[in-house]
Design a protein around this nucleic acid. Structure first.
Lengths: 189, 189
DNA sequence: GGTCGAAAAGAACGATCGTGCTATTTCAGA
DNA sequence: TCTGAAATAGCACGATCGTTCTTTTCGACC
């Protein structure tokens, strides 16, 4: 009498833990043994839920994208001023990078770089997700600066987020957030 | 009667091949067996040159940085107009990303994201290299726009390169280069 | 040309990887 | 409560990993 079958519930637990692990080590380094141990599952018990490691990686990436949508994209529907959507989106994105539940950075950006030259299903999913993200930002950019170069603005915005990610996670720069926001505001000008 | 001892020559060959491999699969996925096979060496013969896998990864990253300096940074000394150094540097950087000898993208940027949350010597080297790169760009930014926000400009420039890398390598966007250059020019304005 | 150290190969190790097979446990419905 | 299916564990496999030790090959110098 649960809203979810037992298998689906553990499957969901697995993916939650997998997203956390993958955000730290990268999707490619996601490994079944340690993941199972963290969850108190057996390797084969976990494996049975997905039928290959690649499928696990793909679903992990998709789960990460769901989190991103829920935390960053979805709340934007509440913003009535379309021109304000880009700055609000960006601020939420940076917030998410800095203090999301994920211990590591944004898995979408990380996977985009990690699998850029490695063919396979993970590459394909990463490409699709990045492309979707870019299209969304281009749409926001058009609304924010109707006379501007939306493609170029979107490229700069995405890049700024990536640069921010590295300056925070890798370098631990204190002023990273302030610098990033200043750079963003001058992009809108 | 060679300018380099034999050991140093093969060591150099190993690092060249390692940079190529790492640029595709990432530094973390750099593995000794396949690397040795590509070079016609035995695993143990290769291993003897470095005394651990981590040392190999560190030296590979440093070799990549040398290539970057030689191809991108160093030629800038010929540019007498200091204000022109940022645009010339950026154009060379984008060229390098698009068509360097490296089959995969820029290893410095890739390693920065790959090892942002993974402690160890590779993380430390990646952080140092990224920091050096950033400092250099901040210097260029100051010369290019003396009254501007150099930190913010540098963050945007670095981000633009990362975004370009992904749009070219992952998405294969035809117009990536044109979009990137338009975005860069509007940064200088 | 012979010698001695450096360079490379060979073989093996323990560990861990992804994955398949089989047995056991758990749970939902009659 | 019983039963059949779904979920999980147990175990084993071949492959590959990084690393060590020993042996062979090579190359520079007297």
């Amino acid at each position: 009498m649960t809203d979810l079958a037992k298998g689906d519930r553990t499957r969901s637990r697995i993916l939650d833990e997998a997203v956390g692990l993958a955000s730290v080590q990268g999707i490619g380094a996601l490994t079944i043994g340690p993941l199972a141990e963290r969850l108190g599952l057996s390797k084969s018990g976990l494996f049975a839920h997905f039928r290959s490691k690649e499928a696990l990686q793909v679903e992990t990436l998709e789960r990460a994208a769901e989190l991103f949508r829920a935390d960053v994209t979805e709340p934007l529907r509440a913003e009535p001023d379309r021109a304000r959507r880009l700055p609000v989106f960006f601020a939420r994105w940076i917030d998410w990078l800095d203090q999301s539940g994920l211990p590591g950075g944004c898995p979408i950006l990380a996977a985009a770089i990690e699998f850029d030259d490695v063919p396979g299903p993970v590459h394909d999913v990463a490409a699709r997700q990045f492309d979707e993200l870019q299209r969304l930002i281009v749409k926001f950019a058009r609304a924010a600066k109707p006379d501007g170069d939306a493609d170029a603005l979107a490229a700069a915005v995405i890049g700024l987020a990536m640069s921010h990610l590295v300056r925070v996670r890798l370098l631990g720069e204190r002023k990273a957030r302030a610098v990033t926001m200043r750079a963003f505001e001058s992009l809108l000008r």
